[in-house]
Amino acid sequence: MAEITAAMVKDLRDRSGAGMMDCKKALAETNGDFEAAIDWLRAKGLATAAKKSGRVAAEGLVGVAVKGTKGAAVEVNSETDFVAKNDQFQGFVRTVTELALTTGDDVAALLAAAYPGGEGSVQETLTNNVATIGENQSVRRAAVVSVDQGVVASYVHNAAADGLGKIGVLVALESAAPADQLNALGKQLAMHIAAANPLALSEAELDQAVVERERSIAREKAAASGKPAEIIEKMIEGGIRKFQQENTLLGQVFVIDGKTKITDVIAQAGKAAGGPITLKQYVRFQLGEGIEKAESDFAAEVAAAAGKQ
């Protein structure tokens, strides 16, 4: 049996919203497996779906850049938020994002590219920045979207400067409709994506492992109802349909009006523009998502340091 610490219980409570005793029991039932404990709580109806981003701890900036019918997003991490306000760091992120329009999604290729106006590669410039700014930094990821005809719209949430912020979104709209109408639609869709954080564009693109995990939770919930087998199966399928609608961009309800599905928003915009519009791709980068920084107990650190005197 794994040791269940108070810190583990607190983390699970913060993540799930369940009570302390329920969290402790969930960890005990799952031998300390955090993700399994979340599923256990959800199956018992004691927690909502796990937060998609978890505890965000990394600092830095997300950059977005658009040129013609192509857009790029890049995340560059630093140790503290203070560095994100540094002009040198911001200039680096902006330049590297623009470079990604050419190098593409491959971070290794981006780091190997020649840094404009510099004496060396992006990696060499990054190494120099670490030395001069005095804080570790890294280019974490990059993504590029494009269309043959249409526009790529961008949006930055919590902007620190033009094209730089905490959340960066790109929306690729394929269409022969006027660019101004496409840009207006793309900006609204990008704002929706920033707020709603869909897992995928469509049901077909959802990670099937995630869907099966939801199916297992739905089955356990339905089984606890005591209803007949045929009713249970309908409950399970209904739960999965709801999950797919709520977590795919095309199935979500538009946050701006709170009633229209995104797929219908696009169809209506195409009708108004006089031609079909296809949402081909989107990218949503949120600073530090999926990265957790170990929390320290400051009082314990001081006590430990005092003991070493």
Rank of each mutant, 00 (worst) to 15 (best):
Q252S: 06
R42T: 04
A28V: 09
A196V: 01
V83M: 06
D105E: 06
S138A: 11
D81F: 15
A57V: 11
E75V: 10
G150H: 10
I236T: 03
S121R: 06
V96H: 01
Q245H: 13
L173E: 05
R94N: 11
D106C: 12
S78F: 08
N129W: 11
K259D: 12
G168I: 07
V66W: 08
A195Q: 07
T132Y: 07
E246T: 09
L110K: 00
S138T: 07
S175M: 01
V211I: 14
T30K: 02
N77E: 07
D11S: 13
E214Q: 00
G275E: 09
A195L: 10
V130Y: 06
N136T: 10
V144R: 07
S53T: 15
Q309D: 14
F254G: 07
T127I: 14
S154D: 10
L250T: 12
D148V: 15
I277A: 01
T278F: 03
A36C: 06
A73P: 02
L250H: 04
L201V: 14
K221G: 08
D11V: 14
A161W: 03
F298V: 09
E3T: 15
A142C: 03
G251D: 00
V107S: 01
V145K: 02
V144G: 09
L287K: 00
A204E: 07
D257M: 05
K51N: 15
G274S: 09
I133R: 01
E119V: 14
G258Q: 14
E98C: 02
R13K: 12
N247Y: 02
F34C: 05
K44E: 11
T95H: 13
G239P: 00
V83D: 02
G186I: 14
A28N: 08
G32V: 02
L199E: 01
V66N: 03
G186K: 09
E230H: 13
A73Q: 02
P228H: 05
S78H: 05
I291F: 13
A72K: 07
A223D: 03
S16F: 08
V265R: 03
A114D: 08
Q188R: 09
F298S: 05
G258K: 12
